[in-house]
Nucleic acid binder design. Structure first.
Lengths: 334, 334
DNA sequence: TTGTAGGCGTTATCAT
DNA sequence: ATGATAACGCCTACAA
């Protein structure tokens, strides 16, 4: 056992079998148009197996000029069950095409995203944060497709995510108004990192209220803590014209609102209706079950996959309206 | 605009500035022991910036024989908030050492994990599933350290994760018994993929009950759905000697139990105590706030980081008792 | 049917 | 102080 064990290379396999490196390459890649003796092929495969040969990624990439890596770039913000589900779906979809999905969570503002390209060279990138658009421009120029979710239409590089987020807020308001509510509240998350996304959703809710001739929603920050949530609920219920329905930033915040209401003895949905976003597994498990905007991870994943596949084939990115990914899941809280 | 844009290489930068490739290399890598004119240095940097030069990862890796990539391998199972938190912490810790964390979710049993090494060559691997130990052996042989969480002691390759999982179940029972309970229930998750881990935790709870001379916990599967959860609670409360306290597989399941109890009008913790696992953010936000076993992602992350750093430096892997990562967070549900 | 040779971009060594 | 050169492991056109 030497201190620094060396990799097993194709040359080692060739030496072990007594054939040339080229032959080894043909066998291992199943190169068509080459006729290799069954015996030789078997010997090579056996030796490769025995020695524990693995193709060496950097050499392969250097030679071919491309990799089969797709990097999914996350900021610290999302990290929720929706992103997890997308990761799972997308990994499977890409694997069918021989592509490998690797997720990188960007640590923060101090280090530029571009440092990543000195470490991995992806065939394509999925960016979950539009803040990187500028940093990603060199990549695009180098011919590496960058796909962003929620882009609708696909070439609208300004404000696509905000539009999608606003649509969520709008959908919440529409559903509450349809249920007969006119005085709405909006529950913001406590985590400052979620502020941009929360702001967009709130904006959508505001627009919807304005269009419908309602008062703007009464905004409160709802920490994930019962007592604080109860305070927020008390705030909404106070005064002569109390809020009767709340749009929550997401299902977590919605569940906090539910708990706050429960603690105060405020009936849901009788005295206060609540609508969330995400449709997390827990949404069906709380009491009352949570009505929420489902973002349908499977549809989002498939859209990302199709956009990616098209971009890698130099084809036009398919148009998939964002509305397809959103639907109200009606349960008991509205 | 050509159809296939080419990368900008160091040679391009050299040509643009009129110096040799080597000089470019010295400047870009800040190679010590070389004296480069300030003017030359500035010219090179300016050209690199202007052309949008990025070092090419595969070539760099091929030349240097190593990468700064750490791959974290996940099976589809965990994916919860704890793993997310660990990802976030670990990414930051590794970034300080110039290492990049990439997360790969293994799609399934059809494709072997080893296929990954033809795509990325990591400097080290973090494996969250002991099922891969055998497939990871070739990596270890190639000198690439493989680190696994929950291994205690570090060299105990058999049953370390089960032991950690069992410890969790044991802690739950201990806490409930300390609070005066003697007839316990155990709430299993519905998702079959969680069965192995759930089985281990249940096993730990069983051992603890046996040691304490109690009846074995009454097991029920609790889907994430109020009505079904209520049924499970009803089952525990039925009969002459009803269960008075429930160990839930995790916080999600615990919250479902809470909801089921709420629907039936069963008081928590008065008539039924509940204890979860994970200490997710929502645990403090439900009513009553959830008492739970916190797995402390920050501690786990630091342990993984230290183990990784030690392994990469060829040093001994530090011993960190698993118990340090577990603590009861007492809130209102017990 | 199999072997030979050249090159991908980077960097370390050696020579100027 | 700067330039030439070789080598990393793999792939493949071409030669034998």
């Amino acid at each position: 056992m030497c201190g620094r064990p060396r990799r097993v290379t194709a040359t080692d396999v060739a030496k072990a079998t007594g054939v040339s490196r080229a032959t080894v390459g043909f066998v291992l890649n199943n190169t068509p148009g080459q006729s290799i003796t069954a015996a030789t092929r078997a010997k090579v495969l056996a030796a490769a197996e025995r020695l524990g040969y693995t193709p060496y990624a950097p050499a392969r990439a250097l030679r071919s000029g491309r990799t089969s890596i797709v990097v999914m770039l996350l900021s610290q913000l999302p990290g929720g069950p929706v992103v997890n589900a997308v990761t799972e779906h997308l990994t499977a979809l890409l694997a069918e095409d021989g592509l490998t999905l690797l997720v990188h969570m960007h640590p923060g503002r101090d280090e530029p995203v571009s440092a990543l390209w000195g470490v991995v060279t992806p065939a394509a990138v999925i960016a979950f944060d539009r803040a990187w658009d500028e940093e990603l421009a060199p990549l695009r120029r180098a011919g590496i497709p960058v796909v962003t979710p929620f882009v609708d239409p696909p070439d609208d590089l300004d404000g696509a995510v905000p539009v999608m987020m606003q649509r969520i807020g709008r959908l919440q308001v529409d559903h509450l108004v349809l249920a007969g509510h006119t005085r709405l509240g909006f529950a913001l998350p406590d985590d400052p990192r979620l502020a941009p996304m929360a702001g967009d959703r709130l904006e959508g809710a505001r627009f919807a209220c304005a269009e419908l001739g309602l008062d703007l929603p009464q905004v409160a920050t709802v920490p994930l803590e019962v007592a604080a949530a109860a305070e927020a609920v008390a705030g909404w219920r106070a005064g002569p014209a109390p809020v009767t329905a709340v749009c929550a930033y997401n299902d977590e915040v919605a569940i906090a609102v539910l708990s706050g209401a429960h603690r105060l003895g405020v009936a849901v949905p009788g005295e206060l209706a609540v609508i969330g976003v995400d449709d997390v597994p827990l949404a069906a498990a709380v009491s009352p079950p949570l009505t929420t905007i489902a973002t349908h991870p499977a549809t989002l994943s498939r859209y990302l996959y199709e956009a990616l596949a098209a971009a890698l084939a130099d084809g036009p990115v398919p148009h998939r309206p964002a509305t397809e990914m959103l639907a109200v899941t009606v349960r008991g809280s509205v």
